[in-house]
Simulated scan of single mutants.
Amino acid sequence: MKPIEVQGLHKSFKSKGKSIKALDDVSFTVEVGQSVGFIGQNGAGKSTSIKILFGALRADAGQALLMGCAAEDPRSRRGVGYVPENPYLYEQLTPREVVSSGLRLHGIKGPENHRRTEHWLERLDIAYAADKRIRNLSKGMTQRTALAHAFAIEPQLLVLDEPMSGLDPIGRRQVADLMQEYRQGGGTLFFCTHILHDVERLADRFVMIHKGRLRAQQSIADMLASQNTLVVRYYGATGLPGFAEDARMIWKGACERSQVPAVLATIAAAGGTLLNAHPQNSLEELFDSIASEAV
């Protein structure tokens, strides 16, 4: 069984009497234990695909299977943690009640329910607000509550749609670390994000959708390892030959992989400080090239 199987999805919406195609023959799968980043511009079709997976929308054609069951079958959501892009939580409840009731829906009661509730409220740094009403919390705190609920059930499959939305820098780092921990523990992760660096760090594979059509899918490791040219950025008073000033006292240049040790040694000898080095054709460059194409 594959946790996610999407085959030939088509979906259109009516707008001012015209049919707007949101998904056009979209197909992809997520294997057990994989971490897959689902990327694309706003309006590309990411959230529409996820809504179809969870039975919130019906596809015009094609098939979506979640945990081996048809998406509209409630049994497909057993053991699945899900946080939508804009989670809606009952405003009169508290974070403690949201997490605890979510666990009960998954059959987890008694001392184990209490243990997991308190553990995940602490892990997401919302224990201090655990008894405040959701309506009195900020967007970031509401997002943390939704994430605590998803992680607490210890899901076989975790689906996150823009999980960093509304979080401050510390919160984003915490959530990224939790996603990495879940991934390394053997969990299956499928997530949407606009932060492409997170995809390179957290995903085994990416699926790119643009204007409703699948445009690319590949192993992150294969994409990065296939690039022989690296872009090096460093902070220093002077630039190396062939390096251009990227910002004040920050220099940027390209070199072959075999030249990297010598370049880094030269930067250090000149008193420079390495900022980063990455393949020239990173996920960001691929994303930009596809997004800028005229379709």
Rank of each mutant, 00 (worst) to 15 (best):
K2T: 00
I4Q: 02
E5Y: 00
G8H: 15
L9S: 04
S12D: 11
S12C: 05
S15E: 06
K16V: 01
K21C: 10
A22Y: 03
V26E: 03
E31T: 00
V32I: 10
I39R: 05
I39C: 09
A44S: 15
S49R: 01
S49L: 08
K51H: 12
K51Q: 13
I52V: 06
I52P: 13
A61M: 11
A61S: 15
A64W: 12
P74W: 06
Y82Q: 03
H106C: 05
K109L: 13
R115E: 08
H119S: 09
A127L: 13
A129I: 06
S138W: 04
T142C: 12
T142E: 11
R144T: 14
T145H: 06
F151P: 10
I153Y: 03
L158D: 07
L160D: 14
P163N: 05
P163S: 08
S165K: 10
V175M: 11
E181N: 12
C192I: 07
L196K: 08
R205W: 00
M208W: 10
Q217L: 09
Q218R: 14
S219M: 09
V231F: 06
V232I: 15
G239I: 12
G239E: 14
L240Q: 05
F243V: 03
F243K: 11
A244E: 15
R248A: 14
Q259S: 11
A270M: 09
T273Y: 03
P279E: 09
A291M: 02
A294K: 03
